[in-house]
C-alpha cells in the first residue's frame, strides 16, 4: 500500500466523517470484540467458579438463564434496550436473584419484591443499584461478543423457547442436566458454552479472543486501509506540480 502524504494525513485528521467510518467498520468492531479484557476475564472466572456479587448491600448470585427469562416474562425494562428503569424494577430483579424460584408466586412478585425492597432499605433513587445490575448483565452477555453481530428486527425475545434452546445446547456441551443448567448455571457460562458449540459447528471460524498485540497489529492495518480508501473517495485531487516552461 502506498504511504499517505502529509496532506492526505491532515485531510483525514480534519474530517469528522472519517471517525464515523472507523466507528461503523465491521472489521474494527470484530477486532474490538476479540480483544482480551483482563478485568472482564476476572469477572467471568469469578462467576464460573461460583462467585457471588454484591449489589448495594445485598449479596446476589450471578444471573441464571431462568432468572433472565423470568425478567423478560415480567416485562422488566432490564431486558429491553434503552428502557426507563424504576426503583421497583430494581427490587424485582434483586428479588428474583435472591429467592428460590420454586418458592416465588409470579402473580404477586412485584408486591413481594417491594416488601423485600423496603426491608432491605432500597433507596427511592435506585440509579446506583441500576448501574450495578446493568454491569452484571454486561458480564453475563459478554461471551456472545465473540460471535458475529446479527441484526435484530425488533425486540429480543427471551421466552421459554429461548430458555430451552440455549440451555439444551449448554446441557449437551457441559454434560449437566437441563434443569441444573437453567436454574444453577450463570448465564455467562451458558453463553460461553454456546460459543463452544458455535466453534464446533463452524470450522474455520474466528470466534475467539486475541492478545492486545494481535489486535493492535490488525487494527492499525485496517485503519490504514480505511484511510487510503477514504482519501481516494473524498479528497480532491492535488493540483499537478508546476512545470518549467521555456521562455523567449
Amino acid at each position: 500500500m502506498t504511504a499517505l502524504t502529509d496532506k492526505q494525513k491532515l485531510f483525514i485528521a480534519s474530517s469528522p466523517e472519517f471517525d464515523s467510518v472507523l466507528a461503523d467498520d465491521p472489521v474494527l468492531k470484530e477486532l474490538d470484540a476479540a480483544r482480551i479484557d483482563y478485568t472482564r476475564e476476572r469477572e467471568l472466572l469469578h462467576e464460573s467458579i461460583g462467585g457471588t456479587w454484591r449489589v448495594g448491600e445485598i449479596d446476589v448470585p450471578p444471573i441464571t438463564p431462568v432468572v433472565w427469562s423470568l425478567l423478560w416474562v415480567l416485562q422488566s425494562p432490564f431486558t429491553k434496550r434503552n428502557a426507563q428503569i424504576r426503583a421497583v424494577d430494581v427490587a424485582v430483579f434483586l428479588y428474583l436473584l435472591t429467592h428460590r424460584l420454586s418458592d416465588i408466586r409470579l402473580s404477586t412478585v412485584e408486591a413481594d419484591a417491594k416488601a423485600d425492597g423496603a426491608a432491605w432499605g432500597l433507596p427511592e433513587d435506585a440509579s446506583a443499584l441500576t448501574d450495578e445490575l446493568l454491569h452484571l448483565i454486561n458480564v453475563a452477555f459478554s461471551p456472545l461478543k465473540m460471535l458475529p453481530d446479527t441484526v435484530s428486527d425488533g425486540e429480543e425475545i427471551f421466552d421459554s423457547d429461548w430458555l430451552l434452546s440455549v440451555c439444551a445446547v449448554a446441557s449437551r456441551e457441559s454434560g449437566e442436566p437441563l434443569h441444573a443448567v437453567m436454574t444453577d448455571f450463570p448465564l455467562s457460562v451458558v453463553f460461553g458454552l454456546l460459543v463452544v458449540r458455535a466453534r464446533k459447528m463452524n470450522p474455520g471460524n474466528r470466534y475467539t479472543k486475541r492478545s492486545p498485540e494481535w489486535v493492535g497489529k490488525r487494527e492499525l492495518e485496517r485503519t490504514n486501509e480505511l484511510a487510503a480508501a477514504f482519501v481516494a473517495a473524498h479528497m480532491p485531487p492535488e493540483p499537478a506540480a508546476d512545470t518549467e516552461t521555456a521562455e523567449g
Partner: peptide
C-alpha cells in the same frame, strides 16, 4: 471534540516538519 470511540489523528514529531498518523 474527540473524546470517545476511535479517532484517526496526526501527530507532529518535535524538532522536525514530519507528521505521523496515529489511531487514538
Amino acid at each position: 471534540m474527540a473524546t470517545a470511540g476511535r479517532h484517526w489523528g496526526i501527530i507532529s514529531i518535535t524538532g522536525t516538519t514530519v507528521f505521523e498518523s496515529v489511531v487514538m
